[in-house]
């Protein structure tokens, strides 16, 4: 029986899955996820797909905001850039989705780095405002640039297909989305074991010390914007494939706020936290919908206020988490895990 958490080498301390049983559990979890389409209903798969997309987007935002400390309110704008560039490339050049999605990610990364340039002069709340302004400007451009984005009417996405095999349902898209999601999770976990990832954290904790230690702030801040926007752009592209029709209203500012809520509730600066937060915030309206419809027989007024109810619960949850558990669900998870690991002799 394990009676303490003893690491004897740096490599052991840095491993992602530290025990044999963790590896087995993760393997089983991945098997469970990828077998889900075989027995789940269409509704569940639709929700699952949205969770997968949210996981990718939340990891992207967490890299920028949670790990590098650059607050961004422009997440919805980056998703829109990813979605519309993916749609445009697919329709205009007739490229298959497996080229469109990475290209959309790269375009978003490029634009994200441009939007990130002010972060070199300004930080904190000024950056938050700059990204908020960028959101409205992107929204404006999406409405106006009709030849590319279809303007107010929007774009109808081409059905993604491998050869003649069309990914035309949530059941088939599921594999695409979850392959990308699992890859993103592994990439992000490994990113913070490398030099750039550690440079991000150093910038967040003490920018000036980081610079003194030889971290090139210009390079790494832009890199953080780039990597983060790549993820978010890919999430936007996948969301576009799932929604099939995208318009300027698909990515309003509330989406950006939802994503910030995800990483706050899940845990800032934690990949696991991004996953928890994405699941939580995506499930929240579904659970509320279930609750309101089941209660609607006794309280018919509930159905009409459903969307406001979602905002209300979201706001309350964000505030409660910020006040009582500012490190998010991930911190709680680790605390519970450590408690049981050494139970009942936790010293």
């Amino acid at each position: 029986m394990q009676c303490g958490d003893f690491k004897t080498s740096y490599a052991a301390d840095m491993t992602i899955f530290d025990t044999r049983s963790t590896r087995i559990w993760v393997f089983l979890l991945v098997c469970l996820i990828f077998s889900a389409p075989l027995y789940s209903s269409n509704y569940l798969l639709d929700v699952a797909n949205r969770i997968g997309i949210a996981v990718i987007g939340a990891i992207g935002l967490n890299i920028l905001t949670g790990f590098t400390g650059l607050i961004s309110l422009g997440n919805a704008a980056f998703m829109a850039i990813g979605a519309f560039s993916c749609g445009f490339i697919g329709i205009r050049f007739g490229l298959p989705f497996y080229l469109c999605i990475p290209m959309a990610g790269l375009i978003t990364a490029g634009l994200g780095m441009v939007i990130g340039i002010p972060s070199l002069r300004i930080k904190g709340l000024y950056l938050a405002m700059a990204t908020l302004a960028a959101h409205f400007i992107v929204e404006f451009v999406v409405v106006k640039w009709e030849s590319v984005t279809g303007g107010v009417a929007g774009l109808t996405m081409k059905t993604p297909a491998i050869g003649s095999f069309a990914l035309d349902s949530d059941r088939k898209l599921f594999y695409l989305i979850y392959l990308v999601a699992v890859a993103s999770i592994f990439f992000a976990r490994n990113l913070f074991r490398t030099k750039p990832g550690k440079a991000f954290i150093a910038i967040r904790d003490q920018a000036i010390s980081a610079e003194v230690m030889g971290v090139n702030l210009l390079k790494y801040k832009l890199l953080s914007f780039g990597i983060s926007s790549f993820f978010v752009g890919v999430a936007g592209a996948l969301a576009a494939y799932q929604a099939k029709i995208i318009s300027p209203e698909t990515f309003p500012i509330t989406v950006a706020i939802d994503y910030l809520g995800m990483i706050i509730i899940g845990g800032l600066g934690s990949v696991l936290g991004s996953i928890f937060g994405a699941i939580f915030i995506t499930l929240l309206p579904e659970v509320l919908r279930l609750a309101t419809t089941s209660l609607s027989s006794s309280f018919p007024a509930l159905v009409t206020v459903f969307s406001s109810l979602k905002d209300l619960v979201f706001g309350i949850l964000v505030i409660v988490f910020l006040i009582y558990e500012p490190n998010g669900m991930a911190a709680r998870w680790y605390a519970i895990k450590n408690y049981w690991k050494l139970y009942p002799f936790s010293h």
Binding site: L125, I264, D311, L312, L317, V318
Partner: peptide, 19 residues
């Protein structure tokens, strides 16, 4: 607490008031 907490808490407050 950290700046992002304060920004986010006012966003949450806004969400509640709007709802």
């Amino acid at each position: 607490s950290h700046l992002i907490s304060v920004i986010m808490v006012t966003l949450g407050l806004g969400s509640i008031l709007k709802a």
